[in-house]
Write a protein that binds this DNA or RNA. Structure first.
Lengths: 136, 136
DNA sequence: TTGCGTGCAAAGGTTTTGCATGGCA
DNA sequence: TGCCATGCAAAACCTTTGCACGCAA
């Protein structure tokens, strides 16, 4: 499963995700972005590269209620960064919070469950949308 | 979007989920289960009922990397029960933990993000699988 | 030259939609 | 009787697979 050959498509996929670090994109968006850069890559290849890159730990795959998103992985070892998704506006947010780390430590020690922070997604209401809800 | 009519199918879907409380099922499994009970319901109807029941807050829809699961909602207001999914064996686990509640309170107060615990899913390794990983 | 990578087409699976019919109120 | 609910078929998606060809090593 390891990448043996260095192909142009492979580099293009990773560098495109790297350029957009901090943002999550779908496989299809990624393909369109590459096409826009004058470097068309087949959707099948995009999926296959994404799978390989995920297994190498270079990117994350985030499964949401609106499909899969992919994102460049900045901090492979970081445990105190997490992802929030607003159920109302659909936006994905990142948050660094030390409280999370201690929860994960607690889960590992007391409940023997080792959390993967790269994949875990919190659903809820973001600040803007929760204010809107109050107003209604 | 409110349910206006009380149909047999509607009651069957809800009562089937209620009977299996604590467990998560896919739409397809639910249909098969109803068929097994001698009450065949079309898959389309299952999906439409699930959507309505979710909007009423009677059930949860849990989006995982292996598709959507539905589950009867026992405690609509409860904030200290959460869902874990083992990335290796795929099993869904429930866990009551007061630590979680305090994290959610912290997020609400300090980061203005209101978590929906009914939908949030933690990915990681369960006790059994983490031991297997060590053994390898 | 070897064999992995690519990309098209097709298949697979899940969820949604259109439409005629059925059934609750 | 009016109108929502049902269920079949089909469509719409997203993702994976098969296969012949291309290309890196």
């Amino acid at each position: 499963m390891a990448i043996r050959y260095n192909t142009k498509q492979q580099k293009a996929v990773l560098s495109c995700l790297e350029k957009g670090r901090g943002a999550s994109v779908t496989a299809c968006e990624l393909m369109e972005r590459l096409r826009g850069e004058g470097f068309p890559v087949g959707l099948t290849t995009v999926y296959r590269q994404l799978e390989k890159l995920e297994m190498q730990g270079l990117i994350h795959r985030i499964t949401t209620d609106e499909g899969s998103f992919y994102q460049y992985c900045d901090h492979p070892e970081q445990g105190d960064c997490f992802l929030l998704k607003c159920e109302r506006c659909g936006r994905l947010e990142h948050l660094d919070c030390s409280h999370l780390k201690s929860l994960y430590d607690h889960l590992a020690e007391e409940h023997r469950f080792i959390i993967n922070p790269r994949k875990t997604l919190f659903y809820g209401l973001c600040e803007i949308c929760s204010q809107k809800e109050d107003a209604e």
